[in-house]
């Protein structure tokens, strides 16, 4: 298995870096949140990739002797997804309050409004 050996990890790094790039390159707060979600999803894929066992199946008990993938990363990520959306909702609520207070969600304009 030369080809799929590390490719999953490399794609994860690519996705993570695109999320990182979105967070850094844009001044728009909503797009920053989307970048963070992108970053977060890449971490999910990283964990789930590590839990995969070749020839294994989903960790739901079947006939004895079956090989299963590792259930532990699944548990961690399952809860992380739901916590992720809860924190995204808080972020969105903050963005709406910022829009109401400053009339913009671009970070340089917010800074200009702060200084004036």
């Amino acid at each position: 298995m030369i080809l799929p050996g590390l490719i999953n990890y490399w794609v994860v790094v690519f996705l993570m870096m695109s999320g990182f790039y979105v967070v850094m390159s844009t001044g728009n707060l909503v797009k920053k949140m989307v970048g963070l979600t992108l970053f977060q999803t890449s971490v999910f894929i990283f964990y789930i990739t590590m839990g995969k066992v070749a020839g294994g199946t989903a960790p739901i008990l079947a006939a004895p002797g079956t090989s299963y993938s590792n259930p532990l990363p699944h548990v961690l990520i399952l809860t992380a997804i739901v916590v992720g959306i809860a924190t995204t909702a808080v972020g969105m609520a903050l963005i709406i309050r910022i829009k109401e207070a400053y009339g913009t969600i671009e970070d340089d304009e917010i800074q200009a409004a702060e200084q004036s």
Binding site: I85, A93, I96
Partner: peptide, 18 residues
């Protein structure tokens, strides 16, 4: 989870456009 998600949606949709 149900109630947090639903009430979050209600709060967001009830907000008037500034």
């Amino acid at each position: 989870v149900t109630t947090v998600m639903t009430s979050t949606f209600f709060i967001f949709s009830a907000r008037k456009k500034p």
